[in-house]
Computed example of a mutant assay.
Amino acid sequence: MNFTTPLQPATLIKRYKRFLADVITPQGEELTLHCANTGAMTGCAEPGDTVWYSTSDNPKRKYPHSWELTQTQAGDTICVNTLQANALVKESLENHWIKELTGYSSLRSEVRYGDENSRIDFLLEHPDRPKCYVEVKSVTLLHQGCGYFPDAVTTRGQKHLRELEIMAENGHRAMLFFAVLHSGIDSVKVAQHIDPIYAKLFEQVKKHGVEVVCYKARLSPTEVILQSPVSVTG
């Protein structure tokens, strides 16, 4: 996936109010960026990090600049715009790059399903195969060389696991897809120390047929591409 507009670098001053970040450009101009990531962003938003941002030409936007990538002072690159995870997976599905998810004739996004008023990220269908429900989660939390999900307690994520479990029990394929958007992460674990309820549900739904797949992205200021499988453990 290529960025539609060239990304520009700046130095992070601070992130605040979840949706905003102040940066300073190489020319000394201070800007306020919109941050699409509402999570904790642990290790992804340290003052002094290099931020790569895009700029929208939409005149109605209060904050035309959007925070896309972080280059940490340790040398890692992170895609902090969580909206890109679904775009990456969709591009990969359309191009048949994910070997576990080939052989389907139609792809739909944000389809309502389940008993808890959910929307599945992707629904794959083929007349001769069971439906496949795919829920996408981005992984950016790095600790001691390993990636963790979630990075905060997530009741929404717990709901998604329950919904996937029901789909699997009803004879459909149900998949939890982790997109690793951090160059320093080479394996992923479920963060039992952060959200023990999520970790317990994760082990439960796997036993009931929910599949878990994880791919790592190659990240740069010009493009982001899902590239290689990564292992996931509970």
Rank of each mutant, 00 (worst) to 15 (best):
E125C: 08
V23M: 11
G157F: 13
N2V: 12
R162S: 07
K206W: 03
E94H: 12
F149P: 07
H208C: 09
A179V: 02
G234A: 09
L219H: 02
V213A: 11
I197Y: 00
F3W: 14
R119G: 11
A40M: 11
R162G: 00
Q8V: 08
E125L: 11
P196L: 12
Y16L: 02
E68W: 00
H193I: 00
K60G: 13
Q71W: 02
S231P: 01
N37V: 04
C79H: 10
S92D: 12
L31H: 09
V136F: 05
E116M: 13
A179Y: 00
T4A: 13
T233N: 08
A21F: 14
K99W: 13
D57G: 01
K137W: 06
Y53W: 03
G209I: 09
Q27Y: 10
H126C: 06
Q71E: 14
G28W: 03
G28I: 05
D76G: 05
N95A: 13
T32E: 05
K62W: 07
H65A: 10
D49F: 04
D115W: 10
A36K: 13
Y53P: 00
L107N: 14
I13H: 00
I225T: 13
C214D: 02
G234E: 09
L142C: 05
R129C: 09
G147L: 10
D186P: 03
A74K: 10
C79F: 01
G145H: 07
C132H: 10
P130I: 11
D49A: 09
T102D: 05
Q144N: 11
G39F: 05
G184E: 14
T154I: 04
Y198Q: 00
A217G: 08
N86V: 06
A85L: 12
W97E: 07
E30G: 07
L69A: 04
F149K: 09
C146D: 08
V232F: 02
I78M: 04
E135R: 00
C132R: 04
H34V: 03
M175W: 00
T154N: 13
Q227V: 05
C214W: 02
Y63N: 12
V134S: 00
S54T: 09
K159R: 14
K90A: 10
S187H: 03
W97A: 15
T222H: 08
R156G: 11
V212E: 07
D186G: 10
P130S: 10
D186R: 06
R173I: 15
I98Q: 05
F19M: 10
G209A: 15
A199D: 08
S56I: 01
C35S: 10
P127T: 09
G43R: 01
A152V: 10
R218I: 06
L101T: 05
D115C: 06
K14Y: 04
F149E: 02
A40T: 09
S105Q: 15
V134N: 00
L201M: 12
S106H: 04
Y148D: 01
H34F: 12
E165M: 14
V139C: 09
P59M: 10
L88G: 03
C35P: 01
H65D: 11
R108Y: 08
N81W: 01
I194R: 02
Y148F: 11
I197S: 00
F149Y: 15
R119L: 14
C79Y: 03
E116H: 06
T140M: 11
Q144G: 09
Q204C: 09
N58D: 15
